[in-house]
Every structure is written in structure tokens, then in C-alpha cells.
Nucleic acid binder design. Structure first.
Length: 602
DNA sequence: GAGTTTGAAACT
DNA sequence: CAGTTTCAAACTC
């Protein structure tokens, strides 16, 4: 509003000036002047919108202005990456993209308002309308947060978002949150994945709980993956920003670990956090293979799950009952909560509450699902923990669900039950408690016998040679991949031997055999993945969830480095073993901080 | 969409 | 620490 008036003034000015300037040139200019008012109008809208982001519509006007700047990007939108049909997609995609870009550039662009010419009026209108629709769900707060993240990451984000729109546009509002989760979960993973294509590390997997939630994390992952495939890996950075509001929370705890560690960690929020890992797990290839649509769906689903939406009525969203709060994110519009205090406005209260909760349980906000790497270190400390690539931090206590429903946090997180679980009648598709126990013992043995790694490797190689099928799984992917539980889809698509679990378990079996322990074999042969996969996996993991990440391999893995190289290797085990030994080197490469330090410890 | 089930979180 | 209550998600109809 204000803007409009000032602009009008300029128009008024000319008359005054006209006195001085009667020259034909001046008249000519004056004649032109009428046009300006029109431009000014656009500008005013944009500014208004900008100035009042809070408004539900807030987005639309700015878009226009921004669009010009973005104009270069638009072409990208039109890019094939988008599945949607061109006509419709144009508007939507354009609009959405614009919004994202606006968020990114937001302030900076304002100056560009002068450039009204750039955006074709048509596109502007259509975009605006659509944009409004998409973004409305997003709270201004969320927008702000996102913006911050965007600004921080700038280039990377911009590119990412550009890419994202392609795949993610549908999700619109969700997208932001997903990013947040990613950040929380694993900022780096995404980048790593994108760059390396490996995905090796991320434990992301944990993430996602059941099909979708897991995907959530995956969502982020997906986005990242998409972005990665597209180009930018930087998205990682973005992730970190996501929840500025909750610095203290779990993040620090896990954050202490090196970035790699973070990657390893699966965020508690099944959706967001895990997904990243999953995505990470997914190789670029996989991602590419998977239909963007699938990812998309998964993302949307995840969005529901991953991008948390709570429905709290009595907790004020200040207790762990609230998924948003538990995930360390503010509630946003999509939430149906009542008397919500989990908003930036009440940041102090939120922080205080978090502090209290953490005082009771320091890990209350820590990721509920911990990936391999963590386990590795933990395992050393805690012999009891299962070797599985990912496990629930505390374990579940299911009595009736059989750990086959989302009631089960393990299942929801896409991880198998562990010894820590007190569940009854565990049938967790991702790994039953009893199985994990066996694996755990095996793992312990492994660790004990690491000295024999070399030997075992040889043995494995021999065995692999004998059993090519076994060997295949063991491939370098194994190690790297192991972390990354392949999406169920992948399992379906890929030969069974490719599954991490199978490979990992096989390797374990071999090890056991070597050690003289053969009893376990039957179970390993079962390769729960295969057994289980059908329903749960299919449902849950369309996107990723890498539940099965359970494989012991995952523990070792982490770094993407070798993946490409290793894949060729015939035996996964070998890869695992090698990786283990190589681990030491990784830390140095990635992070000094990394608590993992596998090598030294190893 | 309402009601039920379930198990985590919070409380005692 | 165990038992109970509260809570909200997940699930069913």
C-alpha cells in the first residue's frame, strides 16, 4: 500500500518538472510516463506481498517480481525433468519455482522490481494464483526459516530448489519441512550422495519409518537425490539450518560427531531424518532408476509423515507426544494442533520445555534410530547392541502389534528390532528381535576377530568365488550400500543377491562358519529381506526406507569413496572387510571430529 | 470423519 | 524402577 503512494508521487512530479521542461523531449517523456504507473502497480503488489509475508497469499505478488530474476531458471522448469504435462506443468511448475526462488532471493530480488518488464504479465498472473495455492499451507514462519537456510546456502540451494520443483513441486509446502528434516537428520548425506552418487553413508535409512515416513527422511533424500542427480550436492548445507530454533536439542549430541557421523545418524523423525539416509543409501543410479513419480509419491506421503504434522490437542505441542516437537521442528499450518505453543513466537517456551525434557532424558530429542556407524562405536561400548545397520535407540515395547505396524517405533523407523526391544511376538519385517540378537553376537565375534579380517577376506573371496551369488551381494556396495538399505523397490528390481542384507548376512554366516559357528546359518539363509519384503517392504518402501539396512555391512561403511570402485569387486564381504580396514582413512578425509574414528578404535 | 487401538511419554 | 495415566498417532470402520 505504502509503496503505491510513493510511486504515484513520481507521476505527480513530472508536472512540476514540466514547468521547467517544456521541451519536446520532456513532453515525450511525459507521454511515456503514464506507462510507468502501471509498472509501479506491479511493484507495489510485490512489495506488499513481501512486506506482509504473513498473509496467506503472501507469496503471490512477490513471485512476479522475482520471476524476472528467475526467468533464467524457468527454462529449467520447463525441462523434461518434470513429468507433468507441459501445459499444466508450466503454470504450476513456474509458479512453484518462482515461490522457491522468491524465498531464496526474496529480499535481494525486490530491487529487481524495477525489472517488471521481464516477467510476462500472463505468466505472472497465472503463477501468482497457483503459487498462492501451493504455498499457503506453509506458514510464514516456515518460510522464513527456509529462507534463512536458503540464504545461507545460496547457490546450492538455488540450484537444488530448481531441481526440486521438478520433482517435488507437488509437495509445495511440504518441501520445506522435508528439507528441515534432512538437515536435522543428515545435512551432509544428501550432498554426499549427490556428489558421490553413492549414498553410501547415510544412515538415513533409519529414517523412514514405514513406507512413507521413512521416505520422509527419504523425502529430503529424494529431494537431495534429485538435486544431486540434477547437479548440486550442496543441499547438504541447507539441511543443517533447518531447525535453528532447537539448537540445543539432540543435534548437539549427535552433531558432536563428525559430519559423517551425522550422516550416519538417522534422525529420530522417521520421516525426515531417515529418509535422507535412505536417499543417501540410494545410489544416484537407483534414484534415477526409480521413477520420479514414485519418489514423488513417496515424498508426498513422506510429507505427510516426514514433514510432520501433528494433531495435538492437549499437549500444546510441547511434549514428545507431539511429533513436531519431538522432531525438533515448529508446528506449521498443516498441523491441526490446538493451543499450539510450538511456534517461533513461543520460542522461549519451546526451548525451555526442551531443556526440561532433555534434563530428564538427554537423548529425548536425539534420533530414535541410529545408524550403523553410531552402532559401531556403540557396539564397542555396548556389546549387547545389534549389529544391524540401524536400530532404534531405545527399542520398542510392542505387545500387540507384532512390530508390524507403525505403532512400533522400530518398524516406523524402518529398522529391525534389537535386543533393546522389549516387544512381544516380534515380527518386524525389517528384522526381528531374535535375529538381531544373533547378528549382534556375530558382530561381536567379528569385532573380536577383526585381526582375522584379512584371513576372512581371503576366505570370503574364496567362498564368493565358489558361490557367485553370494559374492555379488558382497560387492563394495555392500559395505557402502549396506548402510543404505536399498529401497524395497530396488530389491524388487534388483536381483535378490544385490540386497544388502542378504549379502551382509551371508558374509556374517561365512564369518561364523569360519569361526566354527554354523548354527546361525539357517537364519541367514532366510534373509529376512526376502521373506519379509513382500508386503511391508513393498508398501513401506516404495521410495526407500531402507529398512533392511540391517545388514552388518552397513556398520562399516559409510564413506562413499570406494563404492564405485568396489562394486566391481566380486565379493561383498571382501568389500566389507576392506572397508573396515579402510575406515580409518575415512575419518581423516571427512572429518577430524568424527567420533566414529573407526580406525583408531579398530 | 468418528471411533478404536496401540504404545510412547509422562506421571506417580 | 514399576505401575498407571495421558496422549496422539495409527488404524479400522
Amino acid at each position: 500500500m505504502e509503496d503505491s503512494t510513493p510511486k504515484k508521487k513520481p507521476t505527480k512530479l513530472p508536472p512540476n518538472l514540466s514547468k521547467f521542461e517544456d521541451s519536446p523531449v520532456f513532453n515525450f517523456i511525459n507521454s511515456l510516463s503514464p506507462i510507468k504507473p502501471v509498472k509501479s502497480i506491479h511493484i507495489t503488489q510485490t512489495f506488499n506481498s513481501i512486506s506482509f509475508p504473513s498473509l496467506p497469499v503472501f507469496t503471490s505478488p512477490p513471485q512476479h517480481h522475482f520471476s524476472p530474476l528467475k526467468s533464467p531458471k524457468r527454462p529449467n522448469f520447463s525441462n523434461p525433468s518434470r513429468s507433468p504435462p507441459p501445459p499444466v506443468s508450466k503454470n504450476e511448475g513456474g509458479a512453484v519455482i518462482i515461490m522457491d526462488q522468491l524465498l531464496e532471493i526474496f529480499v535481494p530480488e525486490i530491487p529487481t522490481a524495477s525489472t517488471p518488464v521481464i516477467p510476462p504479465p500472463e505468466t505472472v498472473d497465472s503463477d501468482a494464483g497457483e503459487v498462492v495455492i501451493f504455498h499457503c499451507p506453509i506458514s510464514t514462519e516456515a518460510m522464513e526459516e527456509e529462507d534463512e537456510a536458503l540464504f545461507q546456502n545460496d547457490g546450492a540451494l538455488a540450484t537444488i530448489e530448481e531441481n526440486k520443483p521438478l520433482s517435488n513441486l507437488h509437495s509445495g509446502n511440504m518441501r520445506r519441512r522435508c528439507l528441515d528434516f534432512e538437515m536435522a537428520g543428515n545435512p551432509v548425506s544428501a550432498t554426499v550422495e549427490a556428489r558421490t552418487g553413492d549414498a553410501s553413508i547415510p544412515a538415513s535409512s533409519s529414517s523412514s519409518s514405514s513406507s512413507f515416513r521413512r521416505t520422509l527422511p527419504s523425502i529430503g533424500l529424494h529431494l537431495n537425490a534429485l538435486a544431486a542427480t540434477l547437479k548440486h550436492s550442496d543441499s547438504d548445507n541447507i539441511c543443517s539450518d533447518t531447525q535453528p530454533s532447537f539448537p540445543s536439542s539432540s543435534a548437539p549430541i549427535f552433531a558432536s560427531n563428525s559430519t559423517s557421523d551425522q550422516l550416519l545418524l538417522a534422525s529420530s523423525t522417521p520421516e525426515s531424518e531417515n529418509p535422507p539416509q535412505e536417499s543417501a543409501n540410494l545410489t544416484g543410479e537407483e534414484i534415477s532408476h526409480t521413477n520420479p513419480k514414485n519418489n514423488w509419491q513417496s515424498m508426498e506421503n513422506a510429507g505427510v509423515g516426514a514433514c510432520k504434522r501433528c494433531n495435538c490437542k492437549k499437549s500444546r505441542c510441547l511434549k514428545l507426544y507431539c511429533e513436531c516437537f519431538a522432531a525438533g521442528v515448529y508446528c506449521i499450518e498443516p498441523c491441526s494442533c490446538q493451543d499450539c505453543f510450538n511456534k517461533p513466537i513461543h520460542e522461549a517456551m519451546v526451548l525451555e520445555t526442551r531443556r526440561q525434557i532433555e534434563s530428564r532424558n538427554p537423548l529425548a530429542f536425539a534420533p530414535k534410530v541410529i545408524m550403523n556407524c553410531d552402532l559401531i562405536s556403540e557396539l564397542r561400548d555396548d556389546s549387547n547392541k545389534t549389529p544391524a545397520s540401524a536400530r532404534h535407540k531405545r527399542g520398542c515395547n510392542c505387545k500387540k502389534s507384532g512390530c508390524l505396524k507403525k505403532y512400533c517405533e522400530c518398524y516406523q523407523g524402518g529398522v529391525g528390532c534389537s535386543i533393546n526391544c522389549r516387544c512381544e511376538g516380534c515380527k518386524n519385517a525389517f528384522g526381528r528381535k531374535d535375529e538381531s540378537a544373533l547378528l549382534g553376537t556375530e558382530i561381536e565375534q567379528e569385532e573380536e576377530g577383526r585381526e582375522h579380517c584379512q584371513k576372512t577376506i581371503d576366505v570370503h573371496s574364496d567362498e564368493d568365488r565358489q558361490n557367485p551369488s553370494n559374492a555379488a551381494p558382497s560387492t563394495p556396495l555392500g559395505p557402502n550400500r549396506s548402510l543404505i538399505p536399498f529401497p524395497f523397490q530396488l530389491k524388487r528390481r534388483l536381483p535378490s543377491f544385490l540386497n544388502d542384507e542378504s549379502s551382509s548376512r551371508l558374509s556374517v554366516r561365512f564369518k561364523l562358519e569360519k569361526h566354527g559357528i554354523t548354527q546361525t546359518e539357517p537364519k541367514f539363509e532366510k534373509t529376512p529381506c526376502e521373506d519379509v519384503t513382500p508386503e511391508t517392504l513393498c508398501n513401506g518402501c516404495p521410495s526407500i526406507t531402507g529398512v533392511k539396512s540391517v545388514s552388518p555391512n552397513s556398520k562399516r561403511i559409510t564413506l562413499p569413496l570406494p563404492q564405485a570402485d568396489f562394486r566391481p569387486l566380486p565379493s561383498t564381504r571382501i568389500g566389507r572387510k576392506l572397508i573396515l580396514q579402510s575406515i580409518p582413512s575415512f575419518p581423516s578425509l571427512t572429518n577430524q571430529t568424527s567420533g566414529i574414528n573407526g580406525p583408531s578404535e579398530l
